[in-house]
Amino acid sequence: MNTPHNPVVYFEIPVTDVDRAITFYQAVFAFEFEKDIIDGNEMAFFPIKENGSGISGGLAKGEIYKPTTDGCLLYFRTADITETLALAVQNGGKILFPKTSNGEWGFVAEFEDSEGNRIALRQFVR
């Protein structure tokens, strides 16, 4: 199937404590969240710009949501990987893969969030 759209449209990050995860992601990225209960699951939604590029998603707590470092890997854009990694560590995260050059594509890194998920970072070269 040939589609004019990017194939991924939404993500959910499993959490065991929504408020702790909100505090972590607010401290690391300065995101604001909207909370809701959907199908019995506690959710907190990342910001979304209707005409912006990329996708958005939420933090999700419920019986089917289990944090892991072994699952899918999400990349968050950042202007400064070094600063973002420092904020992650200062707020209870740990570095899993240090800032590494991807040549002309910029830099990447990975950290474990407050819930035990592997999260990746991407810093584009300007």
Rank of each mutant, 00 (worst) to 15 (best):
R77P: 09
D39L: 07
L85N: 13
F46E: 14
E32Y: 03
F124K: 15
R126D: 10
E83I: 11
D113Q: 00
E32T: 09
V18W: 00
P4H: 08
P98W: 06
E112I: 07
N91P: 01
T23F: 04
G106C: 03
D70T: 11
S101M: 02
L73S: 07
A21Q: 03
C72F: 15
S53G: 13
P67I: 06
A44W: 08
I95H: 02
N6V: 15
G103P: 12
E112N: 03
K35V: 04
L87S: 08
F24S: 02
E42I: 05
Y75H: 02
N102W: 10
T69Y: 02
A109I: 03
E63D: 13
Q90H: 15
D19L: 09
A27E: 12
G106W: 05
F33T: 11
S56T: 15
G116E: 10
M43A: 03
R77C: 03
V89I: 15
E115P: 09
A27F: 06
F76N: 02
K66I: 13
F24M: 07
T16I: 11
K94C: 10
G103H: 10
I55W: 11
G92E: 00
K94Y: 05
A79Y: 11
F111E: 06
F24H: 05
G62F: 06
P14C: 10
T69Q: 14
E112W: 04
I13P: 08
Q26W: 04
N102I: 15
F111A: 04
V89W: 02
I119L: 01
A60H: 13
I38Q: 14
F31C: 03
E112Y: 02
E63F: 10
Y10W: 15
I48W: 12
W105Q: 12
A88K: 06
E110W: 05
G40I: 04
F31A: 06
D36G: 07
K49Y: 00
N51Q: 01
I55L: 12
E112H: 10
L73I: 15
G71H: 00
K35N: 00
A60E: 11
